[in-house]
């Protein structure tokens, strides 16, 4: 058979795919086109508008904008990395150490926090950490601290909150990829003289690479686009870029500027993910499977 035939469109195929296509066009392509046009539009003094790159220039001229942008990117990468460091042992424990019966229970425990909304989860952390919160109460009560310490509203608290929020999205792909790792490979490496470090870096991580990359992509994108956690747990001067976008749309009512920021964020996440795939030599098609 002619291999090219496989890609020819037929009427039933088009009909079959049309709901998906319409959904894609209406909900994803059209808004983005609109956003792009909006970001290029500049309002003149006379009330009319013209198209230019002025909104993008504004971003580079104003240090607060691009500093927030860089900060957000760096922190998102840091959060992704920390989430990976926490999730790998957890996933390894669930798949390789506990008995299969308890495996399900642990997965359930991992899922549990995600039954409530992110807002409730963040408030949970706030109740624990704030100056009049549970932890301070106990530490002062035990006489370990003289007086309550404010543990919220700093970068550490924010990063911790973001890692917590992202855990599941890293742990699930890692669990599924580690499940396919044959135990005897680990034993064989051990038998041949390997220690924990060489088993992790030579056997487990190379095997888990597709899962690691897909988990990292999801966590990175979610963190980059997160609004609630940085806003509620971060300090007053630890701005997240999504807050800048929000400010432009809602506070300054400058939709054109906001649209350009939105596009820059989209560009950033695409760029970082592309770089990540290049560095780890993974193919997107294989990772999203």
């Amino acid at each position: 058979m002619n291999p090219h035939r496989r890609y020819r469109f037929s009427l039933p195929l088009v009909l079959f795919l049309s709901p998906v296509l319409i959904w894609l066009v209406l909900l994803i392509v059209l808004p983005h086109v609109e956003l792009l046009l909006m970001s290029l539009r500049v309002e003149g003094d006379d009330g009319g508008f013209s198209y230019s790159l002025a909104n993008y220039r504004q971003f580079f001229d104003e240090p607060i904008y691009w500093l927030t942008f860089v900060r957000t990117a760096v922190y998102a990468i840091l959060v992704t990395f920390l989430t990976f460091l926490v999730a790998l042992p957890v996933a390894f424990y669930i798949t390789k150490v506990v008995s299969p019966r308890r495996q399900g229970l642990l997965m359930l425990l991992l899922l549990m926090p995600f039954w409530v909304s992110e807002l409730v989860r963040v408030y949970g952390w706030m109740i624990l950490l704030r100056e009049s919160g549970v932890i301070n109460h106990f530490l002062v009560g035990l006489g370990l601290w003289e007086q309550p310490v404010e543990m919220l509203y700093n970068d550490v608290a924010m990063v911790m909150g973001l890692v917590y929020t992202s855990m599941l999205f890293m742990a699930v792909p890692l669990v599924s990829v580690l499940e396919s790792l044959d135990d005897s490979l680990i034993e064989a490496a051990h038998d041949l003289g390997g220690n924990i470090a060489s088993i992790v870096f030579r056997i487990i991580i190379p095997h888990a690479m597709p899962g690691i990359v897909s988990g990292c992509i999801v966590v990175f994108m979610l963190t980059l686009g997160n609004y609630l956690t940085p806003n509620l747990m971060g300090g007053k001067n630890s701005l997240w870029f999504t807050e800048q976008i929000y400010n432009q749309f809602i506070a300054s009512f400058n939709w054109n500027q906001g649209a350009s920021f939105g596009f820059l964020l989209l560009l950033l996440s695409s760029l970082v993910i592309w770089a990540g795939l290049k560095i780890t030599r993974q193919k997107l098609g294989k990772v999203v499977q």
Binding site: D182, S184, A189, G193, N195, S198, R202, P206
Partner: peptide, 26 residues
């Protein structure tokens, strides 16, 4: 050293790397 029932060769490595694994550990 043990040869496993299903061999347990490391699929992420080449033949040479598989054989060198133990020597590198030493």
């Amino acid at each position: 050293n043990l040869i496993f029932q299903h061999l347990a060769l490391f699929p992420m490595m080449t033949v040479g790397q598989n054989i060198a694994f133990g020597l590198e550990r030493r």
